[in-house]
Amino acid sequence: MGLLARARQDCVAALLDACGDRPAFDWLRAPEVGAVMVRGRTGGTGAPFNLGEMTVTRCALRLATGEVGHGYVQGRSKPAAEAAALVDALMHTDAAREVRAGVLGPLAREETARREARAQKAAATKVEFFTLVRGED
């Protein structure tokens, strides 16, 4: 679900549609845009405090075959939340393998590549500072 939440907004829907026709479903909770209060910890490890909110879109649905799917995605895209919930539901069906290969696999590869690229750029800026000898013993 994390992959689905963090994916670029139109990505999941496009990958899902490439896997074939979408199954029939009913809404358990129609897509809604809201906010989640993000918390941090004092000093990184201490008591929690409220840092600020982020936008999140969520929904829940039930396939005609009975499987339930939940979608939680960052941002304000209702189609993205719908696609995420469908993927979540399909992972409980016989189509799981296909969906894993067609949607989750590409998302994971894209995310890994994106993170690795930034980590490599960061590593290229690693610096060694030398303290110059100041003349005293």
Binding site: V36, R39, V56
Partner: peptide, 17 residues
């Protein structure tokens, strides 16, 4: 915006620096 809830405190030690 409706508030869906609060997150777990973020783990800055695990930050992708």
């Amino acid at each position: 915006l409706p508030r869906f809830g609060a997150s777990r405190p973020v783990d800055t030690d695990a930050m992708a620096v």
